[in-house]
Design a protein around this nucleic acid. Structure first.
Lengths: 144, 144
DNA sequence: TATATTTGCTTGCATTTTGCAAGTGCAAAT
DNA sequence: ATTTGCACTTGCAAAATGCAAGCAAATATA
C-alpha cells in the first residue's frame, strides 16, 4: 500500500513519501495544467500509467490530502478528482521543475511561450493558474 | 540500469526520469545542504539508503550530469562527489519543496529559523547557498 | 426493453526494482 | 604485516510495477 512509514524527519524525505514516485507528480500535473479530472483522463496521458497503479496512486494522494474525490455532476458512473488547496500549493514546485528542465533540455514547442511568461513573473503566473483551478471547480468541460 | 528511456516529451516526466525516485533527491539534498561529498557520507544519512542503490543512483546522477565524481585530495581511497551547475540549478526545486512541507507538516526545529530566512527572500537565500557550494569546491572538511 | 458500451476500478501473474547481507579489492593507518 | 576504511559488487529475497483480463454499476444504443 501507499501509507508508508516515514524514513526520517527531513522535509525533502517527507515530501518524497507523499509524491516522490514516478507517477504521482504526473497526476498532479494533469490536474493542474492538463484540465483532466477523471480516472480515464489520467489513464489517457502520454506516459501510459497502468490502471492498477493509477488506482493506487489516486488512493495515496487522497489519503495524503493532495486530491479529493467527489461525485461527477454529469454522471453517476464518473467521479471528479480535484486538487485540494494543499495540492494546489505544489504549483511552485512544479513551476521550478519546468524552469529547470527548460534550462537544461529541449522544451516542447507548445510550452516555450508559456515558459517565457512563467519565468517573467512567477507570482503572476501562479496566481493565474490558481484562478483557473478555482473557476474550474464550478464549471466542467471534460472535452479533450 | 538507470539509463531509462523517456516516457514522454513532458518536462515534468523528463525531470522525473532524472531525479524522480525515492533516493536521488536525497543525495542532491545531502550535497546541497548537508555538506556531504563522499560515498560513505551518503550512506550515513538518516534515511538509510542501501549501498547497492546508492551506487546505482550515483551512477545515474553522474550520467545525467547532475553530479560529478573526482579524486579526493585527502586520499586515493576516497572520491569526491559534487553537484554540477546543472545540479545546483535544482536548488529552487528543493527550496519550494521545503516551503511546501513547512506549510503543511511539522518542520524540524533546527530548520524553522532557516526556513523563515529562505521564505523572506528566496533569491538572497539561494545566492548564499550557491556561494557556499562554490567555496566548498576549494576547501573540504568532511567532518560530521 | 434488451444489448452494448463506458467508467472506474480489482485480480492474477510475470517482470523489474529494491532492500539486505555478505564479500571484494585497493588504500591507508597501526 | 595486519587491520581498518572506503567504494563499491554480488546474490538472493521481498516488494513494487506492468500487463492483460475481468467485473459491477451506470449509461447509451438498438
Amino acid at each position: 500500500m501507499e501509507t508508508s512509514k516515514k524514513r526520517s524527519d527531513c522535509p525533502i524525505s517527507g515530501s518524497l513519501d507523499v509524491f516522490g514516485d514516478k507517477w504521482s507528480l504526473l497526476i498532479i500535473r494533469d490536474l493542474m495544467f492538463g484540465n483532466k479530472c477523471t480516472y480515464n483522463d489520467f489513464l489517457k496521458s502520454d506516459e501510459g500509467i497502468a490502471t492498477n497503479i493509477l488506482a493506487s496512486r489516486l488512493k495515496g494522494l487522497e489519503e495524503h490530502g493532495i486530491i479529493e474525490k467527489s461525485a461527477h455532476p454529469d454522471s453517476k458512473a464518473k467521479f471528479l478528482y480535484r486538487l485540494t488547496s494543499k495540492g494546489i500549493d505544489l504549483l511552485p514546485v512544479l513551476m521550478e521543475i519546468y524552469i529547470w528542465f527548460d534550462k537544461h533540455y529541449e522544451m516542447p514547442a507548445d510550452l516555450k511561450a508559456t515558459m517565457r511568461d512563467a519565468k517573467k513573473d512567477k507570482e503572476k503566473f501562479a496566481k493565474q493558474i490558481i484562478k483557473e483551478l478555482r473557476t474550474r471547480k464550478s464549471d466542467n468541460k471534460s472535452s479533450s
